Amino acid sequence: MAAGGDHGSPDSYRSPLASRYASPEMCFVFSDRYKFRTWRQLWLWLAEAEQTLGLPITDEQIQEMKSNLENIDFKMAAEEEKRLRHDVMAHVHTFGHCCPKAAGIIHLGATSCYVGDNTDLIILRNALDLLLPKLARVISRLADFAKERASLPTLGFTHFQPAQLTTVGKRCCLWIQDLCMDLQNLKRVRDDLRFRGVKGTTGTQASFLQLFEGDDHKVEQLDKMVTEKAGFKRAFIITGQTYTRKVDIEVLSVLASLGASVHKICTDIRLLANLKEMEEPFEKQQIGSSAMPYKRNPMRSERCCSLARHLMTLVMDPLQTASVQWFERTLDDSANRRICLAEAFLTADTILNTLQNISEGLVVYPKVIERRIRQELPFMATENIIMAMVKAGGSRQDCHEKIRVLSQQAASVVKQEGGDNDLIERIQVDAYFSPIHSQLDHLLDPSSFTGRASQQVQRFLEEEVYPLLKPYESVMKVKAELCL
């Protein structure tokens, strides 16, 4: 049975990233139509530049190519590739079939990587351009969430054990800070992308030097003109047959890092959902379990974690691919890159769409948070109580021993009897502590235990987050809708 299948058929496997999760716009960027249309555009740009620099290419040939950029006979191309065992030459023939007058000058002087690699770089750039505003929107939604809850005390956790208090907004800023680093890295790697350009079979530009009869300047002009037509500021000066596969490492490393950030955020949300302090959106008709109707599973956060793990592992592909590119190139890269580049971007696209949807509907339960604080705060307040007693004339050592005994009794009630923490009640009825009984409410005010959390939130948002989001103001209103 021949390899390949009808990918629109229910009898043929289709990647869930495309069929179930990723956005239509990201799927289109990695589609065959987008790819092969870009090949034709690159052939047109090459012909236009070659004509401008004096090669015998007519206006009629150029116009014929322009008129057929979208006229792609995919069936013919597939048949040609089956016959020739070469995808680029299959599309040269297919393009030439609908451009008979231009057929002889299509791909003039070029090698397969002229269309293959340059198209990949265009796709990487455009895919990054799709991700950047999506990530900015996630940051914006979380920034709104953090600002609104900047002063809401909550129990902090280290080692997932109760620690000092923080605020809900401050905790959210930990998430935002990681995503801001990801946004900066995505922008950097996007701006650092260079075009492969017009380089020939081993990167020496020998074929173009021959076409222009040894004119170095025209060869350099050709490279520059096509690079500018493709919208790049610069091209690699040095290439082998391909652009260095280190570029793929750079791009997928940034995406993998984004995956790590999203995994951490969504894990926190899942843990908070278990504590009943916070939940992701839950639709009115949504079913959490087929057997347990009360369940409210954090399905979206779980999906993000599941896909983020996949995204983090994909960076190993370009690392290994770059390491086995012998001399000017081997074909070890080809099949692998067809999979890992598309999957990385479709996965990143999915987790950003999902995280935006989550961040637009996060639900906080202040009463649950308050109750958990009441359970733990008495123990945390013991040092403040000791200091207040010393100020009232008591002995630190005597007070410490009193607190120690009462704390152990209260802990026994919590752990052995399943009761509430009654340390404060014990202190309130103990005559030894009568000098500070009137101060206990103040000493137990949760806001006095959150330090500068709310001020940190305000400063972080104003100095770091809002300036970073400013270039994306025009796209901030787009909502994230999930079908599944």
Rank of each mutant, 00 (worst) to 15 (best):
G4F: 09
G5E: 09
H7L: 13
S9I: 12
D11P: 02
L17W: 14
P24R: 07
P24A: 04
M26L: 08
C27L: 10
Q41V: 06
W43H: 12
Q51S: 04
G54C: 12
L55W: 11
I57M: 02
E60F: 08
E60C: 14
N71E: 05
A78Q: 12
R83S: 05
D87Q: 09
D87L: 04
V88M: 00
V88E: 01
V88N: 01
M89N: 02
H93K: 09
H93R: 05
C98Y: 06
C98M: 03
K101M: 11
A102T: 12
A102W: 10
A102E: 13
A103H: 07
I105N: 09
I106H: 12
H107S: 02
H107A: 01
S112F: 09
V115Q: 09
T119K: 05
D120S: 06
I122M: 02
I123Y: 00
P133M: 08
L135E: 13
R141S: 11
L142T: 04
F145A: 13
F145W: 11
A146E: 01
K147S: 05
R149L: 01
R149N: 07
A150P: 01
G156C: 05
T158C: 01
H159Y: 01
H159S: 02
Q161L: 10
Q161Y: 13
T166C: 06
T166H: 01
T167F: 01
T167H: 15
K170Y: 06
C172A: 02
D178K: 04
Q184E: 05
K187I: 11
R188T: 08
R190T: 01
R196S: 07
R196W: 00
G197C: 02
V198N: 13
T201E: 00
G203R: 04
L209G: 08
F212R: 04
F212Y: 12
D216P: 09
H217Q: 00
V219E: 10
E220T: 07
E220W: 05
E220K: 07
L222P: 14
L222C: 09
M225R: 09
M225A: 04
R234V: 13
T239A: 05
Q241L: 09
T242L: 12
E250M: 07
L255D: 06
L255G: 01
S257V: 04
S261W: 01
L275K: 03
M278L: 03
M278E: 09
F282L: 12
K284R: 06
Q285C: 03
I287N: 09
S289I: 14
S290H: 08
M292E: 10
P293V: 06
Y294A: 12
S301F: 10
R303D: 10
R309I: 15
R309M: 13
T313Y: 14
V315L: 03
M316P: 03
T321C: 01
A322L: 14
A322W: 10
V324F: 08
R329A: 08
D332I: 00
A335I: 03
R338N: 06
R338P: 01
C340K: 10
E343I: 01
F345G: 07
F345D: 04
F345L: 11
A348K: 01
T350E: 08
N353T: 02
N353M: 14
N353A: 09
T354Y: 04
N357T: 02
V364C: 03
Y365I: 08
K367A: 13
I373C: 15
R374E: 04
Q375P: 06
L377G: 11
N384Y: 10
I385P: 09
G393V: 12
G394N: 09
R396L: 02
Q397H: 00
H400V: 01
H400G: 13
H400R: 09
K402W: 00
R404Q: 10
Q408R: 09
S412H: 14
G419V: 15
I424F: 11
D430E: 15
Y432W: 13
S434R: 10
P435G: 11
P435T: 12
S438G: 06
H442R: 02
L443K: 00
L444G: 09
L444Q: 14
D445Y: 03
T450M: 15
L468G: 13
P471R: 11
M476I: 02
V478L: 09
A480R: 15
C483M: 14
